[in-house]
Write a protein that binds this DNA or RNA. Structure first.
Lengths: 137, 137
DNA sequence: CATAATGCCTACCTTTCTGGTTGGGATTAC
DNA sequence: GTAATCCCAACCAGAAAGGTAGGCATTATG
């Protein structure tokens, strides 16, 4: 159970955008260089974030990416969900019909609790919280 | 971010052992049949659990598996750690030297918090807690 | 002892995911 | 028109997941 690079990169990029927001869009190569992320890879990550409505892109020469909402309105959970799909850890937690064994339901208690612990942790932190902690360069 | 079948199967097997403990070892095929787990796959899972000292095996005709400790002394986190390796989600959380970027350290706050939320949830539930909830067949 | 039930071990296989790269387009400020 | 930028689709190597096959070691029982 490990966080994927995609997810880590995505969050770092979002924090970068939150910290370097000065009205103008931030070009992808700049983010990639500052964060040490392979540019083509970051491109696909930002594409997902754009499809999920978390960032907006401006094309053309002075283009780049910007947060679509205020940093205080974007939770870390939003970013992770956009990149990794639903936070749910096991199929039977959201779906009540997938579980037909008695013992299975016993362990289900665990996954359900784990699920809420994770969502709680991730949804309780916003990008604004993170920029406060970052060394603003 | 999804719980692996290995982990789910392992926990179910452990709950089964906790619920069906009558002094005699429970043979693997019995667990496999009761829980709907492919026997050869379960075999490797139990091997890991045995190496981690969570179950003990008896060979020979009336052999099988038993919990190595009392159900109240085995946390779900023990099982997950045995099967999935350390619970840590990202390399830089335990290792202080792996992180050289300022922004990276900002997101580190997230992973650290997530880490403790997960460990808290998993270490707070024991097998005994789970057998209390299971329909004891 | 022979046999059958069991645990133990190694190797293999297929599918999917991860983390990338390549290369070419479309848009737009200058 | 040109250069910077976003957009997109295809491809690729390596690892992991999930599972299978087959054989060896141990032991209770007749």
């Amino acid at each position: 159970m490990r966080i994927s690079s995609r997810c880590e990169y995505g969050l770092r990029a979002m924090v970068h955008l939150a910290a370097h927001d000065a009205g103008r869009p931030v070009p992808l190569p700049e983010i990639a260089a500052a964060e040490g992320i392979p540019a083509p890879f970051l491109e696909r990550i930002l594409a997902k974030l754009r499809e999920s409505g978390l960032v907006k892109a401006t094309r053309g020469v002075a283009g780049g990416y910007q947060l679509a909402r205020q940093p205080a309105d974007i939770a870390v959970g939003d970013v992770v969900t956009a990149l990794e799909g639903p936070l749910s850890l096991v199929g039977c937690v959201p779906d009540d019909g997938a579980c037909d064994r008695a013992e299975s339901c016993a362990s289900r208690v665990v996954w359900r609790k784990l699920d809420s612990a994770i969502s709680g942790a991730l949804n309780g932190i916003t990008l604004e919280d993170l920029t406060r902690e970052a060394v603003s360069t």
